[in-house]
Amino acid sequence: MIEQINQIRAEAHSQIFSAPDPEALDRLRVHYIGKKGILTGLLHQLKDLTPDKRREVGAVLNDVKTHLEQDLKQRQTELKRVVLDKELAASAPLDVTLPGSYAINTGSLHPISRVMNDVVQILKRIGFSVVTGPEVELEFYNFEALNTPENHPARDMQDTFYINPPVLLRSHTSPVQIRAMKDKNPPIQVIAPGKVYRSDYDLTHTPMFHQIEGLMVDEHLSLADLKGVLNYLIKNLFGSRSLRFRPSFFPFTEPSAEVDMQCIQCKGSGKDCRLCKATGWLEIGGCGMVHPNVFKAVGYDSEKYSGFAFGMGIERIAMLKYGIDDLRSFFENDVRMLEQF
């Protein structure tokens, strides 16, 4: 019987793989493993065998049936494939150059936000934490605590918007330094990003703009640390660019410096360069060692601690980074500008 079964299997195998179409294949399925098929018939004959023989033959039968089922499936796929290939060959491909239709509308971050976040992320990597403060401030935080008493000539450097004295719109992010130091004892290492306001509106000034402020206070900080931090920031922001620190004056730092970056357009040569007005350098921020009077205002011991602070305008950096030439375009919110970011 086993011999017979194997013969059936060989015969069926060759018939299956020579079946010309799905219909012929289906007839073969019925013929061999259908309800009244040959193998089914053989299965019914098992009951006449001895238990030992029954087990032996049964196993072979089942095995053959499984194989035939696999063969049928395989041939079925082959036949389908032939049909499908014909169909596919007959039809034209899609116009793959038509635009994709998934999520046509993509959003964008404002260039100011992008730059602000870049700066924040870079400084976070070297240990700075983000703090924020109010935009509506008191003169105390915006001026007095920053060593800028009333009638100090430096108050002229910033034309301030007032709500009602002593309440004003902060003219820089520096008041956040004071708030941070009043909140926490040294060591402290913070950055304060945000909007600031000055009563100035022309080609190069908007009455609102963005700054980021950095402050670090500890026992052994010097101008060398300040230079290191700002170089790290600028290298990460603009790639390898040299910086120069130029002595300057801010009431709340001493020594103070303006930070200039090698011009990104003329690479520092200054030759016929409009961007840097032929100087080879671009001003990007101010910085310095925290003035002892500022420490006094927040109750820090200036004998024990020293610290540095720096501030820069985000619009300025964004203009340089993206080649934006009109400051005011940041706040016009022209979609044709926004969609480029």
Binding site: A103, N105, T106, G107, S108, L109, H110, I112, S113, E135, L169, K195, Y197, T206, P207, M208, F330, F331, N333, V335, L338, E339
Partner: peptide, 10 residues
């Protein structure tokens, strides 16, 4: 899909 804008606070 939204684009960020920034306006004056006043």
């Amino acid at each position: 899909g939204l684009r960020e804008t920034i306006h004056y606070s006043f």
